[in-house]
Computed example of a mutant assay.
Amino acid sequence: MWDPTKYLAFADHRDRPFHELVARIDATVPRRVVDLGCGPGNLTVLLAKRWPDAALDALDSSPDMVAAARERGLDAVVADVRDWTPAGDTDVLVTNAVLQWVPDHAALLRQWVEAMPSGAWLAMQVPGNFDQPSHALVRELTGLSRWRDRLGGAAPRDPDAVLTAAGYAAVFADAGCAVDAWETTYLQRLEGQDPVLEWISGTALRPIRAALDDEAWAEFAGELAPRLREAYPARQDGTTWFPFRRVFAVARTA
C-alpha cells in the first residue's frame, strides 16, 4: 500500500528527524548496522556513508519500498519487523517512523535489547501527533456509517499508538539500558491547495487509500480536504503551518 514517490514528496520534512536521531548515536566502528523499516532507502544510504566498514541490513514490509531501495544500490529485503530478530553482531539498530504501525511495539523493543550485544545502540523515532486534527478528522470521517462499511476496518492510528518520551525511557531503562529520550514539535511550512491532505496521503492515509477504488478515494478525499483546510488555514502568502510532534529515544545496552 506504499507509494515511494508520494512518500518522498515531502522528503525534506521527513528527513530532519532521522538526522537528529542518528546524530545521537555514538558508535564508532559497528560490525552490523540495521535500518529496520528502510522505506525507499534515501536515508539508509546515509548510514552506509557514516559507517562504511559495517555490514548494512535494510528491511521493509513494503515490496514497493524495497524495490525503490534496491534501485539505490541497497541489498534491501522484504520483512516484517514483528518477525525480525537482531543478529549477534548488530551494534546499531535504527528504526525511523515505523513502530507506530506495530501494536504493542514496546514488547518488541525489549526483545531486541535482550538479543543485541553489550554496548549496542538502538535508536527509534515515531510520530506523536495522532491526537491532532490531521488524524482526529480522519477518524471522525471513517467513523461515519457511509465510510465505515466501505473501509472494511481500515482506519488511522489510535491516539495511543505510541508512548511519550518518558514512556520509551522507562521501557529502555527497565531493560537495563542507558537511554536518551526527547520530544520535538516541528512547525513545518507547507504550500499548495491542500498541503496537509497531501502530507498525510503519503503516510497516515495509506491504509484507507488501499481499501478504496479511485472513485471512492476521490470522494473520501473531497470530504476530508475542506475539514483539513479549516483546521489548518493557509496564510495570505499561501503558507500553511503544520505542527508535527516527534518522539525519539536512543538507548545503549548494558
Rank of each mutant, 00 (worst) to 15 (best):
T5S: 14
A9Q: 11
F10H: 13
D15V: 08
P17M: 07
P17C: 05
E20K: 05
L21T: 02
A23L: 07
R31A: 06
V33L: 03
G41Y: 03
L43Q: 11
L43S: 07
L47Y: 01
R50G: 04
P52Q: 08
D57E: 13
A58C: 10
A58Q: 06
L59A: 06
L59F: 08
S62E: 13
P63D: 06
D64H: 08
A67C: 05
A68Y: 06
A69F: 05
R72H: 11
R72T: 05
D75N: 09
A76Q: 12
A79N: 08
A79F: 12
A87G: 15
A87H: 13
D89N: 08
T95C: 05
N96V: 13
W101Q: 12
W101R: 11
V102R: 04
H105Q: 13
H105F: 12
A106I: 02
V113L: 06
E114A: 15
S118D: 09
W121G: 01
D131C: 10
D131A: 13
T142K: 03
S145A: 14
W147A: 02
R148Q: 12
D149Q: 14
G152N: 01
G153I: 09
P156G: 07
P156A: 04
D158K: 10
L163H: 03
G167Q: 00
G167S: 00
G167M: 01
A169Y: 01
A169R: 03
A170Q: 03
F172H: 00
D174E: 13
A178S: 08
W182C: 01
T185G: 09
Y186M: 10
L190Q: 00
E191T: 13
G192M: 00
Q193S: 14
V196T: 01
W199Q: 00
I200Y: 09
S201C: 09
G202E: 07
G202C: 08
A204W: 13
A204F: 14
L205T: 11
A210P: 11
A218L: 04
E223M: 08
E223F: 08
A225H: 03
A225N: 06
L228S: 00
R229E: 01
Q236C: 14
T239F: 01
F242L: 04
F244N: 03
R245I: 09
R245C: 09
R246S: 05
A251V: 02
